[in-house]
Amino acid sequence: MIEITGLKLRNPTILAAGIMGTTAASLVRVAKEGAGAVVTKSIGPQPKEGHKNPSMVNLGYGFLNAMGLPNPSYPDFSAELETAGAKADVPVIASIFGGNSDEFVQVAEGLADAGADAFELNVSCPHAQGYGASIGCDACAVEEITASVSDMTDIPVWVKLTPNVTDIVSIGEAAQRGGADAIVAINTVRGMAIDIHSGYPLLGNRFGGLSGSAVKPVAVKCVYDLYEALDIPVIGVGGISCWEDAVEMMMAGASAVQIGSAVYDGVDVFRSIADGIDSFLADRDLSFDDIIGLAHRRI
């Protein structure tokens, strides 16, 4: 059992936003497969169909996706969130997005009575025009949005950052100033692939976000830098597919880890990673606290 931002998790594995988080049934299924907490699909102020297909491509070493934040909007998602909260038996975090602070507050207020245990602010999606990283590259905007949501709610506020910036630490510091309870790092890395036989981009949106094992070194470095600079917990995400990846991310400074693309190979990945971490700690007579940020103490 671990505690992060006041939430009690049976283990440090969390379902990442946008992966099997579109219905209560899928969130409950992941919880039953061993996840310590689950994050919903990002929910916004208006319904969005998302980008045209192909919207996801398996490159072998990772995935490119350009979903475009498809969602039913908060009025239609409230019932799913409420059901997930009642049945999942683990913390349920609502990922939300908007084009400005007013829209973030609008969505947060719309979901406030649906039972979310925390909000995760998506200021990091790399392929939705006017949302996500379009905002998350601006430290002032991130601080304002974080403060606006933090001021209207009593539940923890997590802020998910984009790696597609020159200095992720400055964005993390802005979120912390705005009242964030935790930072989630990272979202996908902007990327593109082209079919050499036709000359067409593989994604319907032309470019998207790279996830999977290929981005793990980027995520580890971002978590390492944020842990060094911030006074709030950092939740690591990006390329985690086995317990060794999770331990590495925790040694960089992550208090918990989110798992996304690895679900492609089976939802039992949460239990597998949690059990692997437990065995690693038991074999060395260590606790979670002993390994969080360990790499910083090895300098």
Score class of each variant (00 low, 15 high):
191 G>W: 06
186 I>D: 09
299 I>T: 14
219 A>P: 04
115 G>C: 03
188 T>G: 00
289 D>H: 10
163 P>W: 03
121 L>A: 03
237 V>E: 03
74 Y>G: 03
172 G>P: 01
252 A>M: 06
121 L>Q: 01
91 P>L: 07
52 K>H: 13
298 R>N: 10
147 A>L: 08
262 A>I: 09
131 Y>R: 10
134 S>H: 13
81 L>G: 07
244 E>P: 00
291 I>P: 06
30 V>N: 09
157 V>Q: 04
181 D>H: 14
215 V>D: 09
98 G>V: 05
181 D>A: 13
265 D>Q: 15
204 G>E: 08
135 I>T: 02
98 G>E: 06
78 S>K: 15
31 A>R: 07
281 L>R: 10
36 G>P: 07
170 S>H: 06
146 T>V: 03
163 P>V: 06
187 N>M: 10
2 I>E: 08
214 A>K: 12
9 L>K: 05
127 H>L: 01
48 K>G: 00
266 G>F: 03
124 S>A: 13
154 D>F: 07
167 D>S: 10
15 L>V: 13
272 S>D: 15
295 A>F: 02
70 P>G: 11
174 A>Q: 11
26 S>K: 12
94 A>E: 02
61 Y>N: 13
32 K>E: 15
193 A>N: 11
133 A>M: 09
213 S>K: 15
80 E>S: 13
77 F>N: 09
129 Q>F: 10
192 M>Y: 07
122 N>R: 06
167 D>V: 11
105 V>P: 01
235 I>Q: 04
164 N>M: 08
110 G>H: 03
43 I>W: 06
99 G>P: 02
187 N>E: 08
125 C>M: 01
100 N>R: 06
65 N>T: 04
216 K>F: 08
153 T>G: 08
156 P>E: 03
3 E>T: 15
220 V>D: 13
183 I>K: 04
243 W>S: 14
162 T>N: 01
126 P>Y: 07
195 D>T: 10
212 G>N: 12
237 V>K: 07
122 N>M: 02
217 P>H: 11
241 S>T: 14
119 F>H: 02
68 G>K: 09
59 L>W: 05
80 E>F: 09
59 L>A: 05
297 R>Y: 01
187 N>W: 11
240 I>V: 14
228 E>A: 12
155 I>V: 15
172 G>Y: 05
244 E>H: 14
276 G>D: 04
